[in-house]
Design a protein around this nucleic acid. Structure first.
Length: 464
RNA sequence: UCCUCGGUAGCUCAGUCGGUAGAGCAGGUGGCUGUUAACCACCUUGUCGCUGGUUCGAGUCCGGCCCGGGGAGCCA
């Protein structure tokens, strides 16, 4: 007799006059005169609550309804009517209310008030019940779906690269070791742990990037992308780093650096435009309470072309900046955060693509340019976040790649499979990587990356 | 890892010159109102992060430690 509806579609096209049923959590209760009460119900389908009017003729009005507090789970059935008062277009006139679960106000930590994100972080299991964290979750989901749509529309194949990898990444970032050995009785040989007796017969770790494996599939399927968790064991304590985060990595065969940059720019614009059209209420919330400049920053990305300069030009720009930086600017040194911010926020005031970095500061797989001292690399810097995308054209020439592996002190034996890709049917190819949480940060204005992933893992913290 | 700021009621915070802790919200009681983070009155709530020291007396000053925020570095 009552038709169940989620609140999002209910509010979008209110079926006034219908007998409806909603299920959700009480956000607030306001009593009027002792005759009736207003309840605000949120079911997570959208930011907005549904106002319920429950009066004293209900059999459980005194016994249950007047005891409802923030957080209680309920089912409400009644008639949807136009609201006579300001503040909401419709309201549900309650005929039945069932309590699924109480949330005693004396102990339930969430109140009908502002809480600091730091406080909410101490309860990762309850924080998605707040407006802001639920809004972040919806934006994150919308961005994920938009990302798949973007690549699907362009004929990309979604490839699941491994989480556990045996890529030997000497000289690279710290990795988490994956082992099934008894940590209290480690087998050893020559004073070192003998990983030949471990599960995989060799040392394995959690992936720090799916790129090298993505290249395998790009050189078979043409255009591919990966999207999955990535792990770094660095002792990084910042608002932009996580030990476990999600990375998007497209990889395209028959593609050069310019194609790569064009795709990256199109990609960012597509994703942010999707959020703007699908999550308007959430963005308004962020703009109001989190970051007043949010709408302007999104427009800044969406409404203009990205600036494009070479690393060498960037260094000149910084030298002529007429200001001193904490870190000196010199050709051959990597750009510091302060340099990147200056370029994006003050010089161009929009996203900037910096290309052709010195080969000495970039990894072995990036393609050497004709000048022999730079590589076909690109970083996209956005105001507020800094580097959001890093990519390159990959070295497709066997001899050059082999020389770079050697010059970086890597063992050729570990990269024979990677060299095979150049030995047989090699082709120009390029790709980029984007830290997904950085994008969610940019799209929501959230200052700390720990608020844009459901269960953040950082040094010393892995709750749940 | 370094620099810096902080830790006071369930939450957000104030606490002056060292003199024995209090405001809003939350919670409780009563009142009022088609209410909108409702409102009004009254009531309850403290290991002042831990530890040692200075002092007649420490939330306040000094040392050590723990935890957190921000910034930087690290960062396939």
């Amino acid at each position: 007799m009552f038709e169940f509806m989620r609140i999002a579609p209910l509010l979008q096209a209110p079926p006034i006059g219908k007998a409806l049923e909603v299920k959700g959590w009480v956000r607030t209760r306001r009593d009027a005169k002792g005759d009736f009460s207003f309840l605000e119900i949120n079911d997570g389908s959208c930011l907005a609550n549904l106002q319920v009017v429950a009066d004293s003729t209900l059999f459980n009005y005194e016994g249950e309804i007047k005891r409802l507090t923030t957080g209680c789970a309920v089912r409400v059935a009644g008639d949807l009517v136009a609201s006579p008062a300001k503040g909401q277009a419709v309201e549900l006139r309650c005929r039945e209310l069932t309590v699924y679960g109480w949330a005693p106000a004396e102990t339930y930590p969430l109140q009908k008030k502002h809480h600091s994100f730091e406080f909410l972080r101490s309860m990762t299991h309850l924080r998605p019940r707040t407006n802001s964290l639920a809004a972040v979750a919806r934006v994150r989901s919308a961005l994920s779906l938009a990302l798949h749509r973007f690549f699907a529309e362009r004929g990309f194949c979604y490839v699941h690269t491994p989480i556990i990898t045996t890529n030997d990444c000497e000289g690279a970032g710290e990795q988490f070791t994956v082992t099934a050995l008894d940590m209290n009785k480690l087998p050893s040989r020559d004073g070192l742990v003998d990983f030949s007796r471990d599960f995989f017969g060799r040392q394995a770790s959690l992936t720090v990037s799916g790129q090298l494996e993505a290249e395998v599939y790009a050189l078979a399927l043409g255009n591919v992308y990966t999207f999955g968790p990535t792990f770094r064991a660095e002792n990084s304590n910042t608002s932009r780093h996580l030990a476990e985060f999600w990375m998007v990595e497209p990889e395209m065969a028959f593609c050069d650096l310019t194609d790569d940059i064009n795709l990256a720019e199109e990609f960012l614009k597509y994703l942010l435009a999707s959020v703007r059209s699908e999550c308007g209420a959430e963005l308004d919330l962020f703009c109001k309470f989190i970051d007043p400049a949010l709408h302007d920053r999104l427009a800044m990305v969406l409404d203009q072309d990205f600036a494009r300069i070479t690393y060498t030009e960037a260094v000149e720009r910084l030298r002529k900046a007429g200001r001193t930086f904490d870190f000196p600017v010199q050709w051959g040194a990597d750009l510091q955060s302060e340099h990147e911010r200056y370029l994006a926020e003050e010089v161009f005031k929009r996203p900037v693509v910096v290309t052709d970095y010195p080969r000495v500061i970039k990894p072995f797989y990036m393609r050497i340019n004709d000048d022999n001292r730079t590589v076909a690399a690109m970083d996209i810097l956005v105001p507020g976040i800094g580097e959001i995308i890093g990519g390159s054209q990959r070295e497709e020439r066997y001899d050059v790649l082999l020389a770079r592996i050697t010059e970086n002190g890597l063992r050729q034996a570990d990269y024979e499979w990677y060299l095979d890709l150049r030995r047989y049917g090699s082709a120009p190819h390029a790709g980029f990587g984007m830290g997904f949480e950085r994008l969610v940060q940019f799209a929501t204005g959230m200052a700390n990356i720990r608020e844009v992933i459901p269960f953040p893992r950082t040094p010393g913290a892995a709750a749940l």
